[in-house]
Design a protein around this nucleic acid. Structure first.
Lengths: 134, 134
DNA sequence: CCTGGACATGAGAATCATTATCAGGTGGCC
DNA sequence: GGCCACCTGATAATGATTCTCATGTCCAGG
């Protein structure tokens, strides 16, 4: 009999590299791409292989520690996040990001979906603008 | 004095290739990727170069004839669309798509942005679910 | 502590969508 | 018909991400 959860979360093992990636994202408050993180760590004298950065980021996203989000030009960017469901308000000039909750939107999305006979609903919502420091 | 609109829309010229791409998207009701369109046209005996498909799609998006949307796995998919601002409710099983309007969400997004001092706001919102034919 | 083996790393190759190049082709206005 | 700006398509280039595989290293159990 299988008593494992449907999606097993593989055990993670600590390592200098993962710690470095994690620490970098703790210091940083805006979204960062894998390439950026890789370059920054290399520069700060904590070299980590690019593939390793990608693996660390993937793992953290799976574990719900990070939000991932695709930019227009096809890069995926990451940012530490709170645990509850939320959306982002991002300044397109400086990257400053505010996490916002939108219970009404959640309700609306579910309702509209139901109205059209859709179930098992997820949604994406991001807001971009220019913040008052610009 | 410059009387041109800020973003000039370059003149388009008709051609068998553009017509083919356009016609394909008229027949089709779900989102399609450039690669898919390219393969489908080739198969139906109206070969069009891949680069040309990309160019045609880009042009149509600029002209507001198409909606473009990035999938999780990094492909951009296109679909003919109405002219007014709207969002999509997409079945992740069959791709069936419903265009929905969300005036409340628009207002909400603008308000939240303003609250945090953000201006010049745009937003993205897509809903994915499973439709009742599954 | 010591060790085995599962897990992690990293350099480079591979993938894959998209974009750039550039030498010809062709709409459409005169 | 003729001009020429715009189009096309084969192919190369790009760039992010993933894969490969040989080697390193956590850490539970002894």
């Amino acid at each position: 009999m299988n008593t494992e959860p449907a999606v097993a979360i593989t055990a993670r093992r600590a390592s200098r590299q993962r710690t470095a990636v994690s620490a970098y994202l703790t210091r940083r408050t805006t979204f960062a791409s894998a390439q950026e993180i890789h370059a920054a760590l290399r520069e700060s004298g904590e070299p980590v292989g690019l593939a390793t950065v990608y693996r660390a980021l993937q793992a953290m996203v799976e574990d719900g520690e990070l939000d991932a989000l695709r930019t227009d030009d096809g890069e995926t960017v990451y940012r530490r996040c709170g645990t509850s469901h939320h959306h982002h308000l991002v300044c397109r000039e400086c990257g400053r990001t505010v996490e916002v909750e939108a219970p009404d939107v959640e309700r609306w999305a579910t309702a509209v979906a139901a109205q059209h006979g859709f179930g098992d609903v997820v949604h994406t919502l991001e807001i971009f603008g220019v913040c008052d420091r610009h």
